[in-house]
């Protein structure tokens, strides 16, 4: 998922891009990389990467997102530093794009500076979301995103889950549909995601790609474990 300098996460609304972007950036930082996370989400008003500013700060991750009071606004702001980061060959960048073709249009506006050879453009898929319940729908959505983003998708992330009610069966059913979507599109499934408890039960499964363990960060305050207990707007750590 993170083989190239830039990892771009796109996908339909609510598919889990922010969760994977945050986990990816934190994982890279823990592995010693100097990481920049760009929040390009102009679609949803809550639960954006920027709401995790405190978590990212603590891990030494640079966040590119609107600051000050407009950080909480629903305005379509893209900070200019994103263009610089895309051009800078030394910048290890994770990009969290907003949902659907609507959100991907922001990426389209940056496509002139997106170095294709240095970028993984990954579609996050959750087949338990209402808009993508089958491979055909998912493939159509991917084509819509590619058109808006003016960039080709290079891989799929199989991220089917039901939050706390996720079972190995939910993940495997979703993964089968991700594989079917990959066949339609002619791109690989680069990873399956699961939280550690579910991942333990999937250990013996033949998945055909790496199993990436996720820590759920994008949660309302009452779902947060005490160690990431939130304060203030959504999931900002104390």
């Amino acid at each position: 998922m993170y083989g190239r300098r830039i990892t771009v996460l796109v996908g339909s609304f609510g598919s889990g891009k922010t969760e994977i972007a945050l986990n990816g950036a934190l994982g890279l930082a823990a592995a010693g990389w100097t990481v920049t996370l760009a929040d390009l989400d102009v679609v949803k008003p809550y639960f954006r990467s920027r709401a995790a500013r405190a978590i990212l700060d603590e891990a030494g991750i640079r966040l590119l997102a609107p600051g000050g009071e407009v950080a909480h606004a629903d305005l379509p702001i893209v900070v200019p530093q994103v263009r610089t980061a895309l051009r800078d060959p030394s910048c290890r960048l994770v990009i969290d794009v907003g949902g659907d073709g609507t959100g991907a249009r922001v990426l389209g506006s940056l496509s002139d500076v997106l170095p294709v050879a240095d970028s993984d453009v990954l579609v996050v898929l959750n087949f338990r979301r209402p808009a993508t319940s089958g491979a055909e729908e998912a493939a159509a959505m991917v084509r819509q995103i590619e058109a808006a983003a003016r960039v080709k998708v290079t891989g799929l992330v199989s991220n089917t889950h039901l939050m706390r009610e996720t079972t190995p069966r939910v993940v495997l059913e979703g993964h089968r549909m991700a594989v079917a979507t990959a066949e339609i599109l002619g791109v690989p499934v680069v990873a399956v995601t699961a939280t550690s408890d579910v991942a333990a039960d999937l250990a013996g499964e033949e998945l055909g790609c790496p199993l990436v363990v996720l820590q759920r960060i994008v949660l309302p305050p009452f779902e947060q474990p005490p160690q990431t207990r939130t304060m203030g707007p959504l999931f900002v750590v104390n």
Partner: peptide, 15 residues
């Protein structure tokens, strides 16, 4: 119907 993962707004609309 299988369980879906929905935003509250979507669930309100579908309901």
């Amino acid at each position: 119907m299988a369980k879906k993962l929905m935003k509250g707004s979507e669930a309100i609309g579908e309901a």
